[in-house]
Computed example of a mutant assay.
Amino acid sequence: MSMSISSSSTATTLPAKVKARWAPLLLSAGLALCLTAADAQTSEKKTKTKKTKPPAAQARAKPSVKVTHQPSPSEESSAERERRLYRECQGRPNAGACLGYTRKP
């Protein structure tokens, strides 16, 4: 009694259409995984390299700089602006740029 076992190697391969559908999905999933891993590594590095200043260094902070406004020669004064807004906003709704300028007090 001799039994012969025939092993047929029937390897199933995916058709080209199925491969074409899954390839972009797998690539985007791999890319997303790599980006999240890289983000996690950079956040760990930031927490490790963050240095705190000693209390004496915090007291010697740089002084604030004052910025002065230099009006241009063609700029209107505040009184001129109010007169213009009262003139332009007559009869308009009391909203937007005309808020408070529709009627003289």
Results as ranks from 00 to 15, higher is better:
residue 57 A to P: 01
residue 90 Q to T: 05
residue 55 P to D: 13
residue 15 P to V: 03
residue 43 S to A: 14
residue 11 A to E: 13
residue 65 V to F: 06
residue 4 S to H: 07
residue 16 A to E: 06
residue 58 Q to N: 09
residue 69 H to V: 14
residue 12 T to H: 08
residue 102 T to P: 02
residue 30 G to P: 00
residue 73 P to N: 07
residue 33 L to I: 12
residue 20 A to G: 03
residue 6 S to G: 06
residue 25 L to W: 05
residue 41 Q to W: 14
residue 19 K to M: 08
residue 39 D to I: 01
residue 90 Q to L: 08
residue 51 K to A: 13
residue 92 R to N: 02
residue 70 Q to I: 14
residue 51 K to L: 11
residue 82 E to C: 01
residue 75 E to P: 00
residue 46 K to A: 15
residue 18 V to T: 14
residue 84 R to Q: 11
residue 29 A to H: 04
residue 70 Q to T: 15
residue 89 C to R: 02
residue 32 A to S: 11
residue 31 L to N: 09
residue 22 W to T: 10
residue 3 M to D: 11
residue 5 I to E: 09
residue 4 S to F: 04
residue 10 T to M: 00
residue 100 G to W: 03
residue 8 S to G: 06
residue 66 K to F: 07
residue 35 L to I: 12
residue 67 V to A: 12
residue 1 M to T: 08
residue 52 T to P: 00
residue 2 S to V: 13
residue 5 I to F: 01
residue 52 T to H: 09
residue 33 L to Y: 06
residue 102 T to M: 03
residue 4 S to K: 12
residue 77 S to E: 07
residue 83 R to C: 05
residue 97 A to I: 07
residue 53 K to V: 05
residue 11 A to R: 11
residue 20 A to H: 03
residue 39 D to C: 07
residue 34 C to V: 15
residue 102 T to L: 06
residue 6 S to F: 06
residue 73 P to M: 01
residue 67 V to N: 06
residue 103 R to H: 14
residue 10 T to C: 00
residue 69 H to P: 02
residue 14 L to A: 13
residue 7 S to V: 13
residue 9 S to A: 11
residue 56 A to C: 05
residue 67 V to W: 04
residue 14 L to R: 07
residue 68 T to V: 14
residue 8 S to C: 06
residue 82 E to A: 13
residue 62 K to P: 05
residue 21 R to P: 00
residue 101 Y to R: 01
residue 72 S to N: 11
residue 5 I to D: 04
residue 93 P to K: 03
residue 68 T to M: 05
residue 73 P to A: 14
residue 11 A to N: 08
residue 51 K to M: 07
residue 46 K to F: 09
residue 58 Q to K: 14
residue 36 T to E: 08
residue 58 Q to T: 08
residue 62 K to Q: 10
residue 24 P to I: 00
residue 103 R to D: 13
residue 40 A to R: 12
residue 63 P to M: 01
residue 58 Q to F: 00
residue 27 L to D: 15
residue 31 L to H: 04
residue 91 G to E: 01
residue 75 E to A: 15
residue 3 M to K: 11
residue 88 E to H: 02
residue 102 T to D: 03
residue 30 G to F: 00
residue 14 L to E: 02
residue 59 A to R: 13
residue 23 A to N: 10
residue 75 E to Q: 15
residue 46 K to T: 09
residue 65 V to A: 12
residue 48 K to D: 14
residue 105 P to F: 04
residue 104 K to I: 02
residue 30 G to C: 05
residue 83 R to V: 10
residue 31 L to V: 13
residue 98 C to H: 04
residue 39 D to Y: 10
residue 45 K to A: 09
residue 86 Y to R: 05
residue 27 L to E: 15
residue 91 G to N: 01
residue 8 S to W: 01
residue 65 V to M: 10
residue 88 E to V: 05
residue 87 R to G: 03
residue 18 V to I: 13
residue 91 G to V: 02
residue 103 R to F: 11
residue 5 I to M: 01
residue 56 A to L: 11
residue 32 A to F: 12
residue 60 R to D: 10
residue 60 R to S: 12
residue 32 A to Y: 05
